[in-house]
Simulated scan of single mutants.
Amino acid sequence: MTDMLAEATREQAPKIKADLEKAGLLQDHLFKGVTSEGWDVYDVTFENEKMEWRFVLADDGRMSGAWIRPLP
Rank of each mutant, 00 (worst) to 15 (best):
A23Q: 01
R54P: 00
F55G: 01
V34N: 07
F55N: 01
E47V: 02
A23R: 00
D19M: 05
P72V: 00
F55H: 05
Q12H: 10
M4V: 05
G38I: 06
V44D: 02
F55S: 02
D60S: 02
A58V: 02
K22W: 04
S64G: 12
L20M: 14
M1K: 03
H29S: 11
D43E: 10
E7K: 07
L25K: 15
E37C: 04
E21Y: 08
D59N: 12
P14K: 02
L20Y: 09
T9D: 05
V41E: 00
D19G: 10
L30V: 15
E47P: 01
K17M: 14
D3A: 11
E49S: 15
D3G: 04
T2A: 05
T45R: 15
R69V: 12
T9P: 01
V56Q: 11
T9K: 11
F46G: 00
E47G: 01
S36G: 12
P72M: 00
M4C: 09
D19E: 12
A23N: 00
A58N: 04
M51S: 10
F31I: 04
A18H: 11
D43T: 15
R69K: 08
V34A: 09
Q12F: 09
E47R: 03
A6S: 14
M1Y: 08
G33L: 05
D59E: 15
L71F: 14
V56K: 15
D28S: 15
V56G: 11
D28P: 00
R10Q: 09
A6Q: 08
R10A: 07
G24D: 06
K15Q: 14
T45P: 04
K50C: 08
A6N: 07
K32G: 06
G24M: 03
L71E: 07
P14F: 03
A6H: 10
T2L: 05
T45H: 09
A66T: 05
A13I: 06
L26C: 06
L71I: 13
D59C: 08
V56R: 14
P70D: 14
F46M: 06
L30I: 13
P72L: 00
F46Y: 13
A13Q: 13
I68Q: 07
S64C: 15
M51N: 15
V41R: 01
F46L: 05
N48L: 05
K22V: 05
L25S: 12
Y42W: 13
S64T: 07
V34D: 05
G65C: 02
R10T: 08
Q12R: 07
A18K: 10
E52L: 13
R69I: 07
D28F: 11
V44M: 08
E47T: 03
G38M: 10
E47I: 03
K15Y: 14
W39H: 11
D40P: 01
H29E: 10
R10L: 13
E21F: 08
A58C: 03
E37D: 12
A13T: 12
V41D: 00
P14E: 06
F55V: 03
L30W: 10
D59L: 08
V41K: 03
A66M: 13
S64Q: 11
A8W: 00
F31Q: 05
A18W: 12
E7L: 13
D19P: 02
E7D: 08
T2H: 04
L71C: 13
K17Y: 12
G61C: 01
E47D: 05
F46V: 05
E49K: 15
R69Y: 10
R54L: 05
E7M: 11
Q27V: 15
L25R: 15
I68C: 07
R69T: 13
S36M: 12
A58M: 03
